[in-house]
Design a protein around this nucleic acid. Structure first.
Lengths: 217, 217
DNA sequence: TTTTATTTTCTATAGTTGTAGAGAATAAGC
DNA sequence: GCTTATTCTCTACAACTATAGAAAATAAAA
């Protein structure tokens, strides 16, 4: 009788023999181990045995929490988006317009090691999504939300006078999103922490283009 | 004694028993079959058996031409860049500045089915390159060349007055390259031929931003 | 036709993978 | 200490993989 959710457990009250592990939490632990393995060994090295080992368990221990490998991977991939969105929500909180847009992009760009690792996870995800409609749908939905956010920030920035480009917002949003996605590739394939392609400068430069303003001082 | 090159064969003159297949050409045939398989079944379905079958051969027939699967894949991946660069050279021939830049981008963007299939090949390549320095180097080198081309086109366009953005060319080139790479993701994961994100419009919009000009007529 | 170098097929092998499930280990409540 | 539901370990297995290499097939030259 596996796969009970946290809420189910709690609501059960005083049971004959209470559960010892919180299944929801355990699933997150396993996802974390999966991320570490993918970042370190690549998706090809992410076998059930290796993931279990990384999480501190034996081969078959994942079964009760994820009935199949695909279930585990899909959950793990989905949570990359979740985590990014949580971070984004935090840094954009209370902001609107250009500041919000800048914060959004700075949070999505792979500017530190943690987010470079996320790039090393999302690329295998894309590869799997190419031939897996269910995974492609996860991507599509997230990107749709991101596009909507960007468009809103752009509209606000226009009202504030920070954006006055002669290009419609939907097109700009598409450009920016593609830039953000492309940056993941460069970061994931970069040899070491060297060779920073100046992503922050690219972002500032792009925002400058949107302002269609005069050369800055 | 496999892996003789075409030139070697020809220069051998009248031999006891002339070779029947051109090894170089056969390798290209196999690469083509590999592309088709990856585009149709994904990189996971690209087993030696499946590739051999697609090329019209039995299981072990690839051996004399590619001693190992990795050799085959690396050759196949490298040729995607080759082919793209050949197409790019053709469409930019005689052009400079903004027209050259536009032609370059239009050729790299996944605007038709053939290039969407190439996107479906390059994403698995990126995934493999994450944990394979040799493949990452193929990517790095191609991107360096592309960046150099873009920078040159930008410089020419500036001279011609088509670009007057208050952002340096290296940064602009980085932006544009990332946009082009990001576009591959969207195209490869798009469900059908529907849902075109308006890549051509995005490109034109970006070039408009570079002009920093007034709204077009 | 016979010879001969080349090309291809076919079978075999060693290794790895996801998954299943019996049994041992565990820890809470009596 | 004993019971019991849960959790984990361990072994097993069937499927699939890349690769090796012997043998058959092929086609040009003599």
């Amino acid at each position: 009788m596996a796969h009970k959710s946290l809420s189910e457990n709690i609501s059960r009250g005083v049971a004959a023999v209470p559960k010892i592990v919180d299944h929801d939490e355990r699933r997150l632990e396993l996802v974390d181990a999966t991320w570490r393995i993918i970042a370190r060994l690549g998706i090809e090295g992410a076998t059930m045995r290796e993931i279990a080992l990384e999480a501190g368990f034996a081969n078959g221990a994942l079964k009760p929490y994820f009935p199949t490998k695909d279930t585990l991977l899909e959950f793990a991939f989905g949570h990359v988006f979740n985590r990014t969105n949580q971070r984004v929500a935090k840094v954009t909180e209370g902001k609107t317009g250009l500041p919000a847009l800048r914060a959004f992009c700075l949070e999505v760009l792979p500017l530190d090691e943690e987010r470079v690792n996320e790039a090393r996870i999302v690329i295998p995800f894309w590869q799997k999504a190419i031939n897996d409609p269910q995974k492609a749908e996860i991507h599509r939905q997230s990107m749709e939300e991101w596009l909507a956010s960007i468009r809103q920030y752009l509209a606000e920035a226009r009202k504030a006078g920070d954006v006055s480009a002669a290009v419609d917002d939907a097109t700009l949003a598409g450009q920016l999103l593609n830039m953000l996605l492309g940056a993941q590739i460069g970061a994931a394939l970069a040899a070491g922490p060297d060779a920073d392609p100046g992503l922050a400068d690219q972002l500032e430069g792009y925002l400058t283009l949107l302002a269609r303003g005069e050369p800055q001082p």
